[in-house]
């Protein structure tokens, strides 16, 4: 069921910080800060991860000219253990908090919850977003950082970035959230943790299709439909699914993927970027800025997440995935 927001909550500001490798991102000029130290001068990767979340929130609050005490809710998550980096950031931010886990789709699921809180009048300002830190996530899901395994071309690179948006009441000069679709957990039997794009593409397809159908829209109604981190192969698969469903390939022009574009054509990163911080960083910097500049009037942001764990992979389970979408417009 699509959620239609009568009050059209707005994205008042976005804060994005990223790590050293992310300076190479084609989106890096849109980030608020990139740091040379991947650990943010902290002792462990996980502490650096926490610091990154705090700094992204600080940037968002600074832009809106507000302080922690002005924020009603903090919604967010990451991929590490029981989301301790975000939980610990919440401790320091001192804002009422619910941790949300939709893997890499958390950037949007948190905005949806924040928008609902705004819609019912419970929140004037809420921080929503997600983050990932390469070292902390890789060691959890794959191998130690210094282990020399050969990654296939289908693999994606977990970004080090945190992106948080400030969701507030409707203001005309800010991009506003008109509608949202909460995705199902979709499993097409893919089981390769080094080929996440293939696992996630069907989830993105279902969410986009269901959103368009229920909103009575076509792809051409959008200036941009941006998926989160399908990567270069995943976006190809998503387009392939649309083509097979009877849509002409030239109609698919608005369809892009943040993960596929994130590091440009650099082959070091194989199929592109991934991680909860990938979609969050691009959505809450580049997209918000482009909308405020008037480049895009109607955008569908579709964050995609692979709901696996190292345990589920070792036990031979396939990878269920989800995709959550919000429709944003600018007057």
């Amino acid at each position: 069921m699509v959620i239609v927001f009568q009050s059209k909550p707005s994205l008042i500001a976005g804060g994005v910080v990223a790590g050293p490798l992310e300076k190479r991102s084609i989106f890096s000029q849109h980030f608020d800060a990139t740091y040379d130290d991947e650990r943010w001068q902290m002792k462990t990767n996980e502490q650096g991860h926490r610091k990154m979340v705090e700094e992204a929130c600080e940037f968002a609050m600074k832009k809106a000219g507000v302080k922690n005490k002005d924020i009603d809710y903090f919604m967010g998550g990451d991929l590490v253990n029981q989301m301790t980096p975000t939980n610990f950031a919440a401790r320091d931010l001192d804002i009422p908090f619910i941790g949300l886990f939709s893997a890499c789709a958390t950037s949007i699921s948190s905005v949806i919850v924040a928008s609902l809180l705004t819609e019912v009048g419970a929140s004037n300002l809420a921080l929503a977003g997600a983050s990932s830190q390469h070292n902390a996530v890789e060691r959890q899901f794959r191998y130690p950082i210094n282990y020399g395994s050969q990654k296939p071309q289908t693999a994606q690179w977990t970004v080090t970035a945190a992106g948080y948006a400030l969701v507030g009441k409707h203001h005309e000069e800010y991009p506003s959230i008109e509608a949202a679709t909460i995705g199902k957990s979709v499993d097409y039997g893919m089981d390769d943790p080094f080929h996440m794009g293939a696992a996630m593409a069907p989830a993105a397809f279902q969410t986009i299709q269901s959103h368009l159908e229920q909103r009575n829209q076509k792809i051409y109604h959008y200036d941009l439909i941006l998926t989160g981190d399908l990567g270069q192969l995943g976006i190809k698969l998503l387009k392939g699914m649309f083509v097979e469903s009877g849509i002409k390939s030239e109609e698919l022009k608005p369809l892009r993927d943040a993960g596929a574009e994130f590091y440009g054509q650099d082959e070091t990163f194989q199929s592109g970027a991934s991680g909860a911080g990938c979609s969050a960083a691009v959505f809450f910097s580049y997209v918000i800025q482009q909308m405020r500049a008037g480049t895009y009037k109607r955008v569908l942001l579709v964050a995609t997440g692979a709901l696996l764990s190292p345990l589920s992979f070792q036990q031979g389970e396939t990878i269920p995935c989800t995709a959550h979408a919000i429709e944003i417009t600018m007057k």
Binding site: T154, Y188, L237
Partner: peptide, 18 residues
Amino acid sequence: MEKEQYKQLEQNVTPNPP
């Protein structure tokens, strides 16, 4: 799209290792 059909598409798009 059916799962079988998707598997087909996935195999067409995914490059083999060199």
